[in-house]
Design a protein around this nucleic acid. Structure first.
Lengths: 237, 237, 237, 237
DNA sequence: TATGAATGAGGGTTCATTCAT
DNA sequence: CATGAATGAACCCTCATTCAT
């Protein structure tokens, strides 16, 4: 709270040019942290890629750790905000699952998985202070899916005898490994296809063991619901 | 290939006492790398736990990286050898899947997941030299499961329309995330139960879909999709 | 003499508003240097407390050191001017001594001893340039007491067989240590009482010894010394 | 307790060469810290004067601060041990005071006052951990004089209406200023003479205001005591 | 005149690695 | 074969100082 004050406070008063600089630094830092991981990334490399000196970075961020956390925070913020807004608009668990998976895969293919891996592998061995932040980030990031899982359990779309945590780990774990394979082999031709296959399989995995009737009833309810909403819309015109 | 040769060769021609020394060093190194990760582990700490000096370790291993790789190699060798021998003895894909998952989870719970995390987080950003080794290690490690998948596809126990790689990633990815959750929360009360649940769900995921239910699911998906698009259109008006 | 000239000259020709700015800066700098000492004080902190930027300070003062010196110069100027005016008005050495001591202690207790410590701990290791300034500052500061000592020696109020420098060092050294004790323990309940006690003791110390008591003391010392030597001789046998 | 372990523990096992190295480092560090003060002293300078690299120093001392503390500890240990042994052997407060002052001045003339000043000026603004050490060092260092003061108060040799702390500050403060003067002016021709003058004046300062009779009685008592001891010694032969 | 921004120069500290004994 | 000791090379971080605007 005291040691960082100088650089910290300077950043508070961000002029227009300043804000741009912050973005540049975060962009480059994201690259480097993503490629190298936290430990192997060096401030000097980030600075060099930016074409500035290390000191400049410390003008905006109090420490390497802080910079990295901000990178993570923003990265997750972007996708989390999207998911929180969009997932609830999708109807039915299966569609939601597919939506989340597709979004996640596409986002990661573009951005690289480095940043994502950071959250996993750097999460431990970190000062209490940041450990909390990471926990928050992860919670928020996975919460749209968790909410979908909760809803689906309630509606009977998925099994009720499995902890949600386990399902969540299956979803994110599968995707992560897929992306690792992609990185190593450079092979992941069709993201859409992969997303469809994965969500299909996971949906089957989560589906209540033997309930075609259940599924039919669910479909009926959804159609009825949609019609109801549709009619209300028409009435209001 | 040249730099290592000296220590490598030194290690080749070892007496009985020396072989014991190597084992001791590897054992301690496994502990430390597992607890701290590659970057945060230090040669001093390994040496201290061993009760010797750092220089002694360098008598047997050419570098920190080389030591770490040997640790990984042996760790995976052990479990791989087990799996290669035992998996074929198990009958039926479902049982094999459960066997592999249970073995993996139990092994990691016992040994700490550190070693496992190493392979994943250290796998990238490594000199070309070691990158190949890691690829080999992983290939061998997953090969019993791959073989089981191949057999199961042939026998019709699992779907034939999904790349094996994708299934493999689901298996290992899920387990990995489960273990990370475990590390963070310290919570994984019943390994057996988790193994059963996970293998059950993955088995369902891989199982060939039965046709009527499949048709229903397809319909469901299409209706849901149509509704979604329709509603978005309405919203944008 | 050359490096400073630019900012020095800039400071010479100042409007009324600027003169006020200089005072503000010096006030804040005094605070910060007092609290932290020269090394630990930073220009950023001074600027922040002022609500301006570091660059502004450099508009008025050529360097951190120069600023600090100006702080010291002014601090000592104030008290020196007071002392030069007031001490001669006090009659008798004893009263003068008490006056100087009391003034010094009170001034330092109020202002924090930081500034004072600066002169002592920063006095050495300073560019030749500033070393002279410090010598001057201190000479002027102690000169009222020195004058009083000279007068008192002439009038016979104090011993003539002791160098003035020695007496001066006793006065200021005692006070300094008292103040350090105060800083450490936070304890110096009654400044007036301490000033009285200290001036009383120092006065006795400086007072010409009355002869019979002196003779007795001399005897005492000689006997004690003889005994000591005698006993050591005995012990070594 | 964790961060320092590597270098700390290596120092525990000091071989013969190692112990010598430690002494060399401490010697050079004493010089540099004495000349420059803690802040301005740099590890690189210490290393250069030693003809080694900075890393070598960190092999033996965990941090700059730790090194400095060890310097102080040893410096004070030497003189404190001497004083504790010798002061009680001296009889009578006046002689003891003279003894302490002479010893102190001589020691400091030889070694420079830099180290001594460190204790004063670096004492504050320091981690709690070291603050305690400094307090201990100072307590131990001044305790022989304090004990002498206590005894003298009890025996009536010195005033009872003055806090011991105040007297102690007068003794050490005076000496310190004398030494500063010496350093600046290079002038302190006759240490013995200065010691005599200073102890004489301080003795007068501390002496009970008006008691030639008291002093006489005291002398009588001491002579009687000495005779008594002398006779006992004779009897034991 | 004022300042937001940038940075060169350096400081303390760490650690894998080497080498003489 | 073992090791105590030494160190080069980095790394993170700080801060007085400069300069374009």
């Amino acid at each position: 709270m005291d040691k960082k004050s100088s650089s910290q406070q300077r950043r508070e008063s961000l002029g227009a040019r300043s804000r741009k600089r912050v973005r540049e630094i975060l962009g480059t830092a994201r690259e480097v942290f993503g490629e190298k991981g936290f430990e192997k990334a060096t401030m000097v490399e980030i600075a060099q890629r930016l074409g500035t000196s290390e000191a400049t970075i410390f003008t905006y961020f109090g420490s390497k750790r802080e910079l990295c956390m901000e990178v993570l925070r923003r990265w997750y913020y972007e996708i989390s905000a999207d998911l929180e807004r969009e997932v609830p608009l999708v109807n039915g668990f299966r569609a939601r699952l597919h939506f989340v998976i597709r979004k996640h895969l596409m986002h990661l293919i573009e951005e690289g998985t480095g940043i994502c891996a950071l959250v996993l592998s750097e999460g431990r061995n970190v000062d209490e202070e940041f450990s909390d932040l990471i926990t928050d980030i992860k919670r928020r990031y996975t919460s749209p899916l968790m909410a979908a899982l909760v809803a689906a359990q309630k509606s009977g779309e998925i099994r009720r005898d499995i902890p949600l945590r386990l399902m969540r780990d299956m979803v994110y774990g599968s995707m992560e490994h897929i992306l690792w394979s992609h990185i190593y082999s450079g092979f992941l031709a069709d993201v859409d296809l992969t997303a469809s296959r994965l969500s299909d399989m996971l949906w089957r995995a989560f589906m209540p063991p033997d309930q075609p009737a259940e599924a039919l009833a669910q479909l009926h309810a959804e159609v009825a619901d949609a019609l109801h909403r549709y009619e209300q819309n028409e009435a209001e015109k």
